[in-house]
């Protein structure tokens, strides 16, 4: 299998987009998934619970040094950055980046530097431009970029910024993301490069 990690970033509208995407993946999906969803710094574990109800995958809020596991969605806790290390995740309380903690760029960059071409980055709906430079970094390290078609996004700002930063990314409708991930996870996917909208 050529991929070791799926890194997903989203903000406004993320819950319903994530519900759709993760809900379309089977329990035995073989690649660990890490999610950064912007939210208020006081929010509790509710996000992980809601996502857990929407997908057969195991969903857990990350604790420091958690091991990356297949069949698992690792959700960044509120008010911590998440860094991808080889085989596990670390948390930090370093300064917010572009007003965000957790920051999608920080997570994506560390994923790309650790897993390089084995990284898949996905940007979903959102109301700011976090994640665009992180996604570009994933591609720079040889990984693969998927972006939710801004036309299907609740708020298109985040996916539009990502498309601009990574014009070669695959841009897919929300309903097409899970099937595409499944193809990629089988490693037998025929490359189908679509142009940005």
């Amino acid at each position: 299998m050529p991929y070791s990690i799926v890194a997903i970033g989203t903000s406004w509208g993320g819950l319903s987009a994530l519900t759709n995407l993760l809900g379309g993946l089977p329990e035995e999906f073989p690649i660990p998934i890490v999610v950064v969803q912007h939210r208020s710094k006081d929010s509790d574990r509710l996000l992980a619970q809601l996502l857990g109800d929407a997908t057969p995958l195991k969903v857990c809020e990350v604790e420091d040094k958690d091991a990356l596991c297949a069949g698992t969605v690792h959700v960044a806790p509120a008010n911590y950055h998440i860094l991808v290390e080889s085989g596990h995740l670390s948390l930090t309380t370093e300064e917010p980046v572009r007003f965000s903690r957790p920051s999608i760029d920080v997570m994506f960059t560390s994923a790309a530097d650790t897993y390089r071409s084995e990284t898949i980055g996905i940007i979903l709906t959102g109301a700011n431009e976090d994640g665009a430079s992180g996604l570009a970094h994933i591609v720079k390290r040889g990984g693969r970029a998927l972006i939710q078609d801004p036309k299907t996004a609740e708020i298109p700002i985040m996916p539009e910024a990502a498309v601009q930063a990574v014009p070669t990314a695959e841009v897919l409708g929300l309903d097409d993301l899970a099937p595409r991930l499944l193809e990629l996870s089988r490693g037998a996917a025929k490359v189908d490069r679509r142009t940005a909208v």
């Binding site: 591609v139 720079k140 040889g142 693969r144 070669t168 990314a169």
Partner: peptide, 8 residues
């Protein structure tokens, strides 16, 4: 190995 992303 990964020319298909069009990565620089």
């Amino acid at each position: 190995e990964v020319p298909d992303t069009g990565a620089e």
